[in-house]
Design a protein around this nucleic acid. Structure first.
Lengths: 241, 241
DNA sequence: GGGCAAAAGATTGTTAACAATCCTGTCAAC
DNA sequence: GTTGACAGGATTGTTAACAATCTTTTGCCC
């Protein structure tokens, strides 16, 4: 009933022999896995396991890990391997501060130039999210919650903004997992709904304000007081494998 | 008299044998070279030349090129090598749109929390820039002009914002080189000066407004009408080495 | 002389073996 | 029983050779 009970590292697609997979795809897969919270912060990403999982050589995997590290989604420790990043309190603040700087402006841009199709995609995202919530599909709900923000970034038509936000939203997923309240792991549907309404009515000021408030709400659910917490750096320091 | 007459690729530091250089440093060097406009858009970055220049193995260089490519400062063409990126018109618009989203908010943050030391560093940057202009030191002036923006990002105390802006400012240098008016390759000193004044007087609204206006001014000096221009993709397409 | 085709050279991409480091389990000493 | 050192195994990091692709040159034909 609860899809939470899965193997921790669940990228095992066991690709058929003849297939080929781009390193871009591998990176995207891991991004998704982190965003869906199927890969927890601090999880070790062993090269050999990833090789088997994706059916590619070690060099390719190493390149992917380097790319992931360059986006702060993975941490590379010298001679010690790659681990899913565990954002510190400082990093958590920085990420949301950056989102607070970017996303309200992105909302403005969407109001100015989003097509009906793009708004429809946002609507669809919202509907799927609500459905996933009702069905109790936790992974899907978490993913769709973040995907709303990414679709919104996509609707700006700005590739650079999209790429930057993809990184920030993914890291946010780690942050919420570490510092968030146990139950509150997704954005509230209502926030997204009212935001979308503002976008539809082409009300830039309201959209910007709602986005800012929405991000503020998320931050307010985080516990960024203590120096560390469960799931944070301590976990991997103490991890006995 | 004109320091513009240099070899196009001027990273030749010819490191002493015993030294060691981090890949992080190599990446930073290339970033700097692009920002100072010592590496023009479309310049081929041959692996073997870089190996000799930095005195490191090929693998290390390849990792650096991958990192640079992940920040859109370098373009990797399959089986054809690495080239300094040549932002398209669309990419140019995207980059400045992103800066327009981020930097005004960054200015606000600086007003709120910058220390006197950081403001002094900005002041120093401004002074150096003016001096470089007077001396006709073009490379230094260009670099310092961009560095003002980076120091400002640094003064937010937000590492994530700093990293994102480092990428955007570096790409901006390429964009201005390609699409900018021939003479106007640096921000105007006065803009930076008045902006700093607003920061000093802790006037967030003015700082934000000035930053927005400043970026708008830069964009208005660009010619983003045509589909391509000198220095753009065409150059490397037609380049006979 | 111009244009096309094939071979030589150079550059990039990949694979595999080697070296270095770290983790783990064992054993001895206190 | 706990602590420390040591050896074995596993994982990561590096090097060098090999394969594939592209570029340039050469030569031939029209």
């Amino acid at each position: 009933m609860d899809p939470m009970t899965e193997t921790p590292e669940d990228d095992s697609d066991a690709f058929a022999a003849g297939e080929e997979i781009t390193e871009t795809e591998i990176v995207a897969r891991i991004f998704e896995a982190v965003m869906e919270r199927r890969l927890a912060a601090g999880t070790k990403l062993s090269e050999s396991e990833l090789c088997k999982a994706f059916g590619v050589g070690r060099m390719r995997i190493r390149r992917c890990l380097l790319l992931l590290a360059s986006h702060d989604v993975v941490e590379l420790r010298s001679n010690r391997g790659a681990y899913v990043a565990s954002p510190s309190v400082k990093q958590a603040r920085d990420v949301f501060e950056a989102r607070l700087a970017i996303e309200p402006a992105a909302a403005r841009l969407v109001v100015e130039r989003a097509t009906e199709d793009q708004l429809a995609a946002l609507q669809a995202c919202l509907a799927e999210e609500a459905e996933a919530h009702q069905r109790g599909n936790r992974h899907a709900a978490i993913r769709l919650s973040g995907e709303f923000h990414l679709r919104l970034a996509e609707a700006t038509g700005n590739e650079t903004l999209l790429r930057l936000l993809k990184e920030l939203v993914t890291r946010s997923s780690l942050i919420v997992a570490i510092y968030g309240a146990p139950g509150l792991e997704t954005c509230r549907d209502h926030d997204h709904a009212s935001l979308l309404a503002a976008l539809r009515s082409r009300d830039a000021d309201t959209a910007e304000r709602l986005m800012r408030a929405h991000l503020g709400d998320i931050i307010s659910t985080l516990d960024l007081s203590g120096p560390a917490r469960i799931g944070s750096d301590l976990v991997q320091v103490l991890a006995k494998r």
